[in-house]
Amino acid sequence: MKTAHELVVEAKQQIAEIGLDDAELAVQRADVVIDVREPDEYQSGHLPGAINIPRGMLEFRLSNDDKLSARDLNLVLYCKTSGRAALSALSLKAMGYLHVLSIAGGFDAWVNADKPVTHPNLPDFE
């Protein structure tokens, strides 16, 4: 039986993973940037322009949204440290998506490199 770590290592051997040096340009050129973290993680901060589609809903959302169903979209995926994004990229590759990139090191690496982060405007209930 394989562990989650082993699955991620195998996925990373089969996908296109980009480092931070290339990530900012890839994000700018992407048709869609997808944050595959959970909604609470996304709400705490995310890459500018990213949409949130949690890992568990990714295949369903892309299959059922006409704007996301084109297989030639330029997609950039990320999660906290890159494991969920790698598994997501492998799934999208299996679905026939042609241009899927995963950011090595994920959101944590992005933040540690002082790259731009967006914090959503939430209502103040006080």
Score class of each variant (00 low, 15 high):
Asp66Trp: 06
Leu77Tyr: 00
Ile18Asn: 08
Leu7Ala: 14
Leu92Ile: 06
Leu25Ser: 14
Thr81Ser: 14
Leu77Arg: 07
Asn112Cys: 12
Thr118Gly: 05
Glu38Tyr: 01
Thr118His: 14
Lys115Asn: 04
Gln28His: 12
Ala113Gly: 10
Ala94Leu: 12
Ala70Asn: 13
Leu58Cys: 06
Gln13Ile: 06
Lys67Leu: 13
Asp124Leu: 08
Trp110Ala: 11
Gly106Tyr: 00
Asp108Gly: 00
Met1Lys: 12
Leu58Ser: 02
Ala4Thr: 10
Val32Pro: 10
Ser63Thr: 15
Glu24Ile: 14
Arg71Ala: 06
Ile18Pro: 07
Ile51Arg: 11
Gly56Asp: 02
Gly105Pro: 06
Glu6Pro: 04
Ile34Cys: 11
Thr81Pro: 03
Asp22Tyr: 09
Lys12Arg: 14
Ser102His: 05
Leu7Gln: 12
His99Trp: 05
Gln13Cys: 09
Leu90Ser: 04
Asp65Pro: 01
Ile34Tyr: 11
Pro116Ser: 04
Leu68Gly: 01
Arg61Ala: 10
Val27Trp: 00
Asn112Gly: 08
Ala113Ser: 15
Tyr42Asp: 07
Leu98Ser: 10
Gly83Val: 04
Pro123Ser: 12
Asp22Ile: 04
Ala113Leu: 05
Leu7Tyr: 14
Asp40Ala: 15
Ile18Trp: 10
His5Arg: 13
Gln13Gly: 09
Lys93Leu: 14
Ile53Tyr: 02
Arg84Met: 02
Ser91His: 11
Leu92Arg: 06
Met57Val: 10
Ile15Tyr: 12
Met95Trp: 03
Pro39Asn: 15
Asp72His: 13
Leu75Trp: 07
Gln13Met: 12
Val9Lys: 15
Val76Asp: 03
Ile53Asp: 03
Tyr42Leu: 11
Ala89Trp: 02
Leu122Asp: 02
Ile34Asn: 09
Val100Trp: 01
Phe125Leu: 11
Gly19Ser: 08
Asp66Met: 13
Lys67Ser: 12
Phe107Trp: 14
Asp124Met: 09
Asn64Trp: 07
Gln28Cys: 09
Ser69Thr: 12
Asn74Glu: 14
Leu68Met: 09
Ile53Lys: 01
Asp66Ile: 10
Ser44Ala: 15
Val117Ile: 13
Leu98Cys: 06
Phe125Asp: 13
Ile103Glu: 05
Thr3Val: 03
Ser102Asp: 05
Ala85Glu: 07
Val117Ala: 04
Asp108Glu: 13
Ser44Gln: 13
Val111Lys: 13
Ile34Gly: 07
Val111Glu: 13
Val9Gly: 08
Ile51Thr: 03
Ala85Leu: 04
Asn112Pro: 05
Glu38Ile: 02
Val27Gln: 01
Lys93Asn: 15
Val27His: 07
Tyr97Leu: 08
Glu59Arg: 07
Leu62Met: 15
His99Gln: 10
Leu68Lys: 05
Val27Asn: 09
Ala50Val: 00
